[in-house]
Design a binder for these strands. Structure first.
Lengths: 139, 139
DNA sequence: CGATACTGTAATGATTAATATTACAGTAAG
DNA sequence: CTTACTGTAATATTAATCATTACAGTATCG
């Protein structure tokens, strides 16, 4: 699984806990343990899709744009990782019936798998992820 | 998605179409467009799990050990790719409630996702994959 | 105004994962 | 005892991921 997906979830969860102020990419990056530029790249996707708002300049940063239950993991998956389930088949032998057709057979099977995964991911909104993180909290 | 998974499917489909004779790793490799050593590695997993039989020496190779409908894609996934859905989280910041707990929250979510995927993959046996390949055949 | 603190994004470099290749021991057939 | 295979380890190559640098653009504040 593409780690942009989990970075996006991590970022949104963090923003969910800071509803009143802008969070900088540096702050998020430190929580996630990655480079700030990577956070900005991932968050620019979320911004394009209207899940967050960003602001440049002093006091700028990122903030959640919607209610926590308006964003689910399937939304995030589609933005960051659509097609990630698809295996990257090397070019196989077109002379052979299997080599010639396996690619398209697998493609349709994995399309179905992704749709099926979607049904599962839709069950988790950011609100629920936040709840899970709080429950997991270690004292 | 791990390409060992698709290589295993490809190999088994090919073996399914050659039920009476041994197929060599070189033959399979040529159909799949990869190196024979890679085929032997993947097939050695399938062998350990009893799906195929191998034979060394002249006239040796690989052959299907079961009925075509006794092997489904979930079986193959488990052997070749279990855990592949799990994202590889970098070590995040334990000082932060999100950094500290996100990893285990994501872990359980992805465990569920994999189980859910399993339900879908169980619906495809090699027999059905063979049918699909035949249907797809381009004349 | 100019200094400061941010985002946005491209370009490059470093690290890691995936894959191919080589090498060779073991086994069975003829 | 030679030939044609599998089995597996070791190494080399290629590709993907990620970090880093660099810098332009924008907003705030004094």
């Amino acid at each position: 699984m593409n780690s942009d997906f989990t970075l996006a979830i991590h970022s949104l969860t963090l923003l969910a806990l800071q509803p009143d102020r802008m969070s900088t990419s540096e702050y998020i990056a430190e929580s996630a343990g990655v480079h700030p530029v990577r956070i900005r790249k991932v968050l620019s996707l979320l911004k394009k899709n209207g899940f967050i708002i960003s602001k440049e300049g002093t006091g700028g940063g990122f903030i959640f744009a919607l209610d926590l239950d308006q964003v689910n993991l399937w939304n995030i998956y589609q933005i960051t990782s659509e097609g990630a389930l698809q295996p990257k088949c090397t070019e196989s032998n077109g002379q052979c019936i299997v080599g010639a057709n396996m690619k398209s057979v697998l493609f349709s099977i994995f399309m179905g798998a992704e749709a099926h995964l979607g049904e599962y991911l839709k069950e988790y909104t950011i609100k629920e992820v936040v709840e899970l993180v709080k429950q997991t909290e270690t004292y």
